[in-house]
Simulated scan of single mutants.
Amino acid sequence: MTLEVSHLVGGYSQIPVLKDISFDVKDGELVGLIGLNGAGKSTTINHIIGLLTPQKGTIKINGLTITEDNQEFKQQIAYIPEMPILYQELTLREHIELTIMAYGLDHEKAWKRATELLKIFRLENKLDWFPANFSKGMKQKVMIACAFVTEAPLMIIDEPFLGLDPLAVHDLLSLIEERKKAGASVLMSTHALDTAEKYCDRFVLLHDGQVKIEGSLAELRQALPGVGETLDDIYMSFTKADQR
């Protein structure tokens, strides 16, 4: 099991945003993290990647916590944020070189993989471009390429489809499937419920900092008979009930 979140309590102040949440992501599994804006999805992700320190609870990646080995813990994660984060003074080539150094990758093997990814996203002729030259969608593709170069065992993907054209969305989903088959675990936060329903193995529905329900689509249907057949039906049944 790659990721284990156990009884996590945390947030940005002494008043917790996350209220005792627990879930896991197994090897070779894509788990969809879904919920309304403010439900705690980004806060959960920020705790997992080490930007926030839990007030209570534990986060383990392959049995390791961040306090036991900070560097090893973080090298097991490839993170694609909702908004691209690039260094304005570095070219695309230099972003890839930085990623290779940060993860201690084999240089030749990593560049072979990077070249394949750049061709997929039609960036192979833009290695000497700076971020100022890229559109938002192209910046997102740079983030995706850098993340998939690492071949990390855990991928954390936050709202990955924003700004991507349909072809790039298809390419990204194909890459996720490829990494799953290789045994990687993927946690993906998304509002694209129709896409999540089609590609995710399980779902964790957050609301008000709590896990309201989790499981495969079949398990959610079984737990909520009469609600509806689709992930959207199940999602709406929870959110509308809480707004009454």
Rank of each mutant, 00 (worst) to 15 (best):
A218L: 14
L164R: 01
M1E: 13
L217G: 12
E116W: 08
G10E: 10
R179N: 02
D69Y: 09
E89F: 07
F134S: 04
V211R: 07
T99P: 09
G137D: 07
D208W: 06
K119A: 15
V5G: 07
T44H: 01
A110R: 02
H95Q: 13
Q71R: 14
L118S: 08
P153E: 03
G228H: 09
L18V: 10
F148S: 02
F238A: 05
T2G: 03
I120Y: 01
T239G: 04
I100R: 04
K180L: 13
F23C: 09
K139L: 04
Q55A: 14
V5P: 09
E219T: 12
K119H: 15
T190C: 10
L86H: 07
I59K: 03
E124A: 11
A192Y: 01
G209S: 09
F203N: 07
L117F: 09
L206D: 10
A145Q: 01
G50H: 04
I176V: 15
V227W: 12
P160W: 02
T2D: 06
G215F: 08
D20S: 12
L30Q: 07
A218R: 13
G104S: 07
V204A: 11
V227Q: 06
L175I: 03
M143F: 00
L206G: 12
S13D: 12
D194C: 06
A182I: 01
V9I: 14
T44W: 01
I156G: 02
Q76D: 05
D24S: 15
V169N: 00
S174L: 10
L231M: 11
K180E: 06
L117S: 08
